[in-house]
């Protein structure tokens, strides 16, 4: 398969790092070369965060370039908008229909952009909107938003579902495993339904 470029974007504290770990494990299980890059430190304090994941026969750069992402998984709507220009033509965005105001909006320095989903849909070939917060709540913990979104991504990628489940078993600690398997399933099904509604 050609190199797959994936961006996971969100707000510090939303659990993008665990999601990227599982995703990278899936890639390793395919026998692919894989690189991922993320930034730690100050940005994690509620700032805008991004993880780059690249997988393929041979991967050199750990960074996804503008206009080259096959998939963007946005944990928050505004972050989807911020990173949307990284999507390649024909790429897909999975976006969590959740709004988290940045401090610049809270303090009135800037408005939260209206109609983000419409803007995304106008520019991208495929936008999968999913209420990951609600789905996570339904399976028992709002912290599982990250794995719900991973399930939605899995629906779109050409990798066997069983591989994803195995990767989750390998990465997630035993006591949180059931919850995360359910979260994955909820996202997987949710994205399937969203795609049907779209077509």
């Amino acid at each position: 398969m050609p190199t797959q470029n994936i961006l996971l974007v969100g707000v510090g504290g939303q659990g993008t790092i665990l999601a990227s770990k599982i995703l990278a494990e899936v890639a390793v299980m395919q026998g692919l070369d894989v690189k991922m890059s993320e930034v730690h430190g100050m940005a994690q304090r509620g700032g805008s965060v991004v993880t780059h994941v690249r997988m393929g026969e041979q991967v050199h750069s750990p960074l996804v370039e503008e206009g080259e992402a096959d998939f963007i998984v946005a944990f928050e709507k505004l972050e989807a908008l911020r990173w949307a220009h990284y999507l390649r033509e024909g790429g897909s965005i999975v976006v969590n229909d959740q709004r988290i105001d940045p401090m610049t909006v809270i303090t009135g320095q800037a408005p939260y952009p209206p109609e983000i989903l419409e803007t995304l849909q106008a520019d991208a070939e495929e936008v999968v909107v999913i209420d990951a917060l609600q789905l996570a709540r339904e399976v028992g913990s709002i912290k599982a938003v990250n794995v719900v979104l991973l399930g939605a991504l899995a629906q779109k990628m050409q990798i066997e579902k069983s591989q994803w489940l195995e990767a989750i078993r390998r990465i997630v600690p035993a006591k949180a495993l059931d919850l995360n398997l359910q979260a994955f399933e909820a996202g997987f099904q949710g994205a399937g339904i969203a795609a049907q509604a779209d077509s």
């Binding site: 707000v11 510090g12 504290g13 100050m42 940005a43 994690q44 304090r45 509620g46 700032g47 805008s48 503008e66 206009g67 080259e68 505004l78 972050e79 908008l81 911020r82 949307a84 220009h85 990284y86 999507l87 033509e89 940045p102 401090m103 610049t104 909006v105 320095q109 800037a110 408005p111 939260y112 952009p113 803007t119 520019d123």
Partner: peptide, 16 residues
């Protein structure tokens, strides 16, 4: 490449 969206408010890190 795809154009960068205009008027995206920055999201600086904040005290928790």
């Amino acid at each position: 490449v795809g154009k960068r969206a205009a008027n995206v408010p920055v999201r600086p890190p904040v005290l928790c």
